[in-house]
Amino acid sequence: QEVVNPEDYIKHPLQNRWALWFFKNDKSKTWQANLRLIAKFDTVEDFWALYNHIQLSSNLISGCDYSLFKDGIEPMWEDERNKRGGRWLITLSKQQRRADLDRFWLETLLCLVGEAFDDHSDEVCGAVVNIRTKGDKIAIWTADYANKESVTHIGRVYKERLGVPAKVIIGYQSHADTATKSGSTTKNKFVV
């Protein structure tokens, strides 16, 4: 009788079930109506099946977003799990769309589904990529801006995973500050 290795036929379960959302900017519709759930997955294999099936971020038209959030958390500030939180924000230059955008977004996804932030991964809510003419943005959203230890751990690991040079500073901003800002920039609660 042949002994079968479970590794060969059981999909690799993720710690969390994740939901991928797509936003397409149609000004004739409300913000919420422009937001669509694409699919949910909870295994390594199903993550790749989805990732390989959809367009790269760099192929999306301006105004579109992808969001990957833990199942049960909606990709908006108002969600109960997001409203006290904030984001580590990566702002990209126009040139970086070709050079870095798809690589950074995939690395972000791998950090999330692989639970790269150790015990602090529980503080992660999701991540968003915004495709914009003036410059694309990628962010990891966490649950509580006041949880300094988790927020800074996540920021340090994330910066290293993206290969951002030490001299380049990335900032963490609370959603409350982003929502109430008056100018075009939001003050950073933390930097790494």
Partner: peptide, 20 residues
């Protein structure tokens, strides 16, 4: 225990034949 996967492990599955 948390199910953690490092990047190389995850990348190794990108082009695996689909599970049946």
């Amino acid at each position: 225990k948390k199910k953690q996967y490092n990047r190389d492990f995850l990348l190794g599955f990108q082009f695996m034949p689909a599970c049946v």
